[in-house]
Write a protein that binds this DNA or RNA. Sequence first.
DNA 1: CACCAGGCAAGTA
DNA 2: TACTTGCATGGT
Length: 216
Amino acid sequence: MVENTFLDIYTALFEHYGPQNWWPAETPVEMIVGAVLTQNTNWRNVRKALANLKAANLLDIESLDVLSHEKLAEYIRPAGYYNLKAKRLKNLIRMIVDDYHGDLQRLFDEELDCCRSKLLQVNGIGEETADSILLYGAGRPVFVVDTYTHRVFSRHNLLEEECSYADIQERFMDNLPADAALYNEYHALIVRVAKEYCKKTDPCCRSCPLNRFYEE
DNA sequence: CACCAGGCAAGTA
DNA sequence: TACTTGCATGGT
């Protein structure tokens, strides 16, 4: 039996919380829109914005492409940064329309590195958003790193504080099988445990299910 | 009242 | 290259 803290932590989290059923979206378009809207924003607020778009029957590439910036911004207002995010969504939709005939699946069908760089070329799509879309939209085995991942693992001395996004992603992917279902659940579980036990200011408390993995 | 939330890009030195 | 700042609503 080979020691693997990263896999052991996954197992502990899954046993503690069970499946998280991510990504919470009914369609691929809803998923990618949610990925942009949730940037530095509480998911509760994103749900309101998505509900507005859904109620207006606008959650498809064509409708979002035709919609004016002003109207889009108004629909997504509850998600915050609404002018900025309206632009970012428009940039993403434009790429899909111009380069893939408005067919999101054609983007997802691209080779992995190609798909990732296409997403990163869009102004407003950074590494985390791109990787979220790859994993939760396209079902690719790409590990998603977010502030919670960094905070939880550095606070337990399992990652250096100054690790970059790529450093952290590499550490996870080098220590886990390339399995999209595993990456999906793991990222969602990290978000779950961080929300409960690893807030920005509070120190991790004794009942945190990860405390037995703390490394001196 | 202050603080935070499933980031990112532009500006500054 | 390495910091800093703007973007914004809504819940605790």
